[in-house]
Amino acid sequence: MDKVVFGQYYPTDSVIHRMDPRIKLLAIILYIVTVFFLVDYVMYAAIFLFVLTITFIAKIPFKVLLRTVRTIIFLVLITSIINLFFTTGEELWVEWKFIKIYREGVEHAIKLALRLILLMLFPSLLTLTTTPMELTDALESLMSPLKLIKIPVHAIALIMSIALRMIPILMEETNKIMLAQKARGADFDTGGALKKAKAMIPVLVPLFVGAFRRADELALAMDARCYSSVAKRTKYKVMKLTVKDLVASVVCLAVFSLVFLNKYLWGFDEMILALFK
């Protein structure tokens, strides 16, 4: 494939890549919760440092990680601007005609932007260092207690893994069809939004027809091999917790505890300001 998609698996040989995907998944969930508990700038910086350190250990170029942020840059800008103008507070900084900007607004805007970027960065690290198959295996394993209340965990995991598997196939197919139509003189790049949308019809119709054909063939092939979602299945790669997973868990828990301590007990920003006074 020609383009490296954002968040796509980035193969390097690193400890992070070899970690148990279940631990990674749990760490991500905890991380997302943690980001909402960030209070002080010092902690924001600490979490950024944390993410960058992991990126470094995972041997992923920072450029690749930053590319994932580019996709949400608009969202970040818009939410920040809205917060900047519509947050009211006590300390008025700018007043011009109907526009009023408060100190709280500025702070809100900055923190929200940082929060959104952090929310994008860490989960991207997960998909960059974990293959989709590992992810679904991890999900299946983590959700297995739900089997007790008759939730078809295996079927859900299967649907997910097929869906994930289909993404690159469909992308390749889209690419192929676009090339074929380009060879027939199609022009996807010029014209207004309407013209561009119309130009996509010759791509989308064959794509959908192909997707249904593939789904049909896959179902038939699985049937032919007596696939059953209730049969006991073995795995090619068995997930096992090792020392590095334990170390990673401890480090994550330590970092995240710090955030909660900061939220409820210690104010780092004030401490540092007090030091300088």
């Binding site: 192929k176 069809i177 090339l179 074929a180 060879a183 003189g185 199609a186 010759p202 119709v205």
Partner: peptide, 29 residues
């Protein structure tokens, strides 16, 4: 693209229009 005509692999998977006539006229159009 008018000079070099390219028939890709499995070209039948690239058909899209309602009628054969419309589909064939896509290129010339």
């Amino acid at each position: 693209r008018g000079t070099v005509g390219m028939v890709m692999q499995y070209p039948e998977y690239q058909l899209f229009d309602e009628t054969v006539e419309k589909d064939v006229s896509y290129g010339p159009k």
